[in-house]
Amino acid sequence: MVDGDRHTGELLTTFLGEIGLETTCYSDGDAALAATRSDLPALIIAEVVAARLGGLDLCRKLKSDERTASAKFLIFSVIGAAKRARDSGADAFLSKPIDKARFLGVVRTLLARELEISS
């Protein structure tokens, strides 16, 4: 997860933990890009407004690289950038704030296969 807001990071980590997902938070996009290339996660959640490398640019880089394109990408932002999220190749766009039920619903849909396998 790439988000500079501590509260968002803490809340999402807790909520995702409730459905058995482990989360690593980064406050800047560059660090997340490097981490993703070394250890591909099932899902990347990114805010459009993030330090160094914003969520949309991060999404484009990862989706255009065949080594990382398979990871699901969710843009979760305070900005209503649904169209730009689609253009950058994201699998889902969700606007803030955190509506727990809706957020987990989207994650469950994106990771249906992975969650089924793990259960």
Binding site: G80, A82, A85, R86, A90, D91, A92, F93, L94, S95, K96, R102, V106, T109, L110
Partner: peptide, 8 residues
């Protein structure tokens, strides 16, 4: 793409 935009 799944999409949820904040509504009024």
């Amino acid at each position: 793409m799944i999409e949820f935009i904040e509504t009024d």
